[in-house]
Design a protein around this nucleic acid. Sequence first.
RNA 1: GGCCUCAUAGCUCAACUGGAUAGAGCAGCUGCCUUCUAAGCAGCAGGCUUCAGGUUCGAGUCCUGAUGGGGUCACCA
Length: 615
Amino acid sequence: MLLFDKIRTEIVNALHRRYGKTVDPDLITVSPTRREFTGDMTVVIFPLVKELRIKPAELGPFIGEHLVKRMPEVESFNQIQGFVNLSLTIPFWHSFLERMLSDNRYGAWPKNGEKLMIEFSSPNTNKPLHLGHIRNILLGWSCSKIVEAAGFSVVRVQVVNDRGIAICKSMLAWQQFGNDETPDSAKMKGDHFVGKFYVLFETKFAEEYRQWQETEEAETVWKKSGDQNDKRVTFFKEYKNTYFNEYSALGRKAKELLQKWESGDRNTLELWERMNTWVYDGFEQTYQRLGVQFDKLYFESETWKLGKQEILDGVKKGKFYEKEDRSVWVDLSHIDMDEKILLRSDGTSVYMTQDIGTAMLRYRDYGIDRMVYVVADEQNYHFKVLFEILNLLDEPYSDGLHHLAYGMVDLPDGKMKSREGTVVDADDLMDEVIAEAKKVALEKSDISDLTDAGQEEIYRTIGMAALKFFILKVNPQKRMIFDPGASVDMQGQTGPYIQNAYVRIRSIERKLDDNNSLGTYSKYTDIQECEKVLLNQLFIYPEVVRKAAADYDPSHVAGYCYDLAKSYHRFYHDVPILGADVEEAKAFRLGLNRGVAKILAHGMDLLGIEMPERM
RNA sequence: GGCCUCAUAGCUCAACUGGAUAGAGCAGCUGCCUUCUAAGCAGCAGGCUUCAGGUUCGAGUCCUGAUGGGGUCACCA
């Protein structure tokens, strides 16, 4: 922020002139003054004390007096130990408010000329989206908005995992037990419909496996395993994968389908396309309800063969090496990492191969400077390796790679497990929060003069705000516990609480006369504590955006919006706005009113949350 | 077991990246609606920041170790 930098520069110059030493501006921390002290900006001078070997009792007054003298914005200062608190002048705050009200881009930073691609969502096409995806999608979307506000051009993409054994399982189950049913005939959302067959496959397979365990063949396998320390049940639990690959009839058929798909069998491809289309229809509805869009979809069915050529080129350049069995590896032991396989001995690709190819393809498509992957933290190592490899290959964007790793979402009683049916479905969840919002609204609010559609729209807005805010307020890195009960809370540190502040503002605005002018407040000097707090917070906003973008962390914005709303509620409670005793106070408070509304709406938009006019 | 990561009020989360007396919400208890939307405001209570050392003017934050969660160590994705 400009003022912060100005203060730092002034101090550096003054110290240089007085003591003949040039100090690093980064040594000087300038931050908003904590509420319990008087002042607006605080300079921490401890580091300077150390550097210059001058007592705080001498250095503090010197810096304070200098800033008061040299900066017209600085009115006075006080010092407590190593903290110099600066108070800014009232004209400064007046002109700030005027500036932020008239600047319709306030909060956003100028274009920085860089292009950033962000990948999020990236679902499999065999199951509907669940709570884990929701965290991913909300994070991805919000980050994309935040970095956009911080000056980047943004490309939003997802990689759709539309191939592989999983979708083949759904296809097989549909062929065998589907009776030509379709989402229409079953009156189901497409993704749920396909997911139903995936589950059906797993059920049938589990049944088959259980029966097989009674056979002599199974008995022989068990005895041969030699691992008699384990219990029989434990053994077969772990043996499941091997069974699928070597003995299971269903497993064999599913793998046959996969082979047919890979060899381009027409019937298989048709079915595959048909079922995937159902799934996309379903996903699209979910994305729309979540309010997110993508600029480009990359499909694994199109990218899975990419990367192989680059790997072979890399071998020629000596970046990778081939083992005796012709598999290709990269050696990262020089940076304390393992060897990693890049091509199988039969020459086929692995996940890493494909990711390398996809990265290159994206660069060709868009010429990006930065690439952000929103993927759960269980894949930390994978991305570490991927980035090292792209680095090794001297890819032009390799300095701008970032894995936005977020923690998994747990339920109050533990992990979500599909096997135990504890997975929280995305669509159900949205239905629930909206229903809850409606319930609460029917108790507390009076919007009955609106049309039914208008009312429903408000319930939707409030419910979605509760859900989104509940998820985004948590630091992405951290594992979070999702308590369904708490997620529909509408009081306290919640989305609806913030919306309520906005609605109060809008209600006041509506009561204003048609001439939208606020009146002049330049004579208003008796700024109240609760007003000062709002000014300070509005002033900080661009810095919050910058920091959230630098950290790829929407929780900074969420926390900020909550704090601002809280300060507003207090302001609203403590001072009359329309009924202010003097004209300039009314004008000033209306200005604050409007400024807060503007920033709340802007900040919440960065979180992908809409603001209602009434609630 | 190796590596990575997390641990803050009963619960869910903050703490401007090393700064002032660690803050919010929920849950519990008290007050405040004839006045701009009470989905609000104010107050009470709740803490040896998991433990033990270290670094320095100063540590929830950095270093070492311990304990306890989670992740990852596939020619799976």
